[in-house]
Design a binder for these strands. Structure first.
Lengths: 127, 127
DNA sequence: CCTGTGTTCAACCATTTGGTTGAAACACAC
DNA sequence: GTGTGTTTCAACCAAATGGTTGAACACAGG
């Protein structure tokens, strides 16, 4: 799908089974069979899920005899956190600016919606 | 289309266009047409993207005459951050513990990895 | 009323996804 | 070698996704 890693990571974590596998991998590395055990799907399906996680860089696999232990690569979390935090901070700052605007707005103002302005239309809508 | 919100949020942000729209919405609310302008897809496609973001709770829309301004709901970022940080912290702590284990492990040890019973009521030979 | 603007709905299409079964490949033990 | 356990490959399927076009809806302003 989307070529960039961030898209692949988000996409990989959009599946509850895959998120659960990640959560279990924070406790310990595990093999495909071990990972598959709790779920009501075939081992092949889990193998596919792991491929998705691996392609996204969320996990890596090493070889150990006939087993292929799956290991969590925690760094990708930073990638997501960076994206999220960046825009959250922007959004929060924007709300701060919006507060200022609202505070300085007279009550009897013309109700014409201020278009093009970086400001919420405010028809008594959401918080 | 997993039912839970976290899945929907991750899935919604797995698309580059949708992430870009979110990033632009941190600057200011915008209408569908405004949002569609930079992309090489039809307005209808953007409308669909917005529905995905709205169903995930990432944005909300109010009615304003015939326009439907799109507003970013920054709280969902917390949802993701919580999930991510939780497991990242677990993973980091695990690595710390693993270091201890490795330090105290004799060379001639059985190569079976020390596993800590993640959650499944395992019958396997796990420590 | 009619027209124009903004948005969504409906039908359709191609591709991807998440699952299945069955066979194959791999690494070891005997 | 033969077998046994672990993982993947291949083919297939149903459903979801992301896109299109065309029609419909909602409202503002002649």
């Amino acid at each position: 799908m989307a070529a960039d890693q961030l898209s692949r990571v988000f996409s990989a974590l959009a599946d509850p089974i895959r998120r659960d596998m990640v959560s279990r991998l924070t406790v310990a590395d595990a093999t495909v069979n071990e990972l598959a055990e709790p779920y009501d799907v075939t081992v092949q399906a889990v193998s596919k899920h792991l491929k998705v996680l691996e392609d996204a860089g969320v996990v890596s696999r090493t070889r150990q005899a006939q087993r292929r232990p799956v290991h969590l690569e925690a760094e990708v979390f930073d990638l997501m956190t960076k994206w999220i935090e960046r825009y959250r901070r922007q959004a929060e700052e924007r709300y701060r600016r919006l507060d200022d605007v609202l505070r300085s707005m007279p009550e009897d103002m013309d109700p014409t919606p201020p278009r093009e302005e970086p400001r919420a239309p405010e028809t008594g809508a959401q918080t």
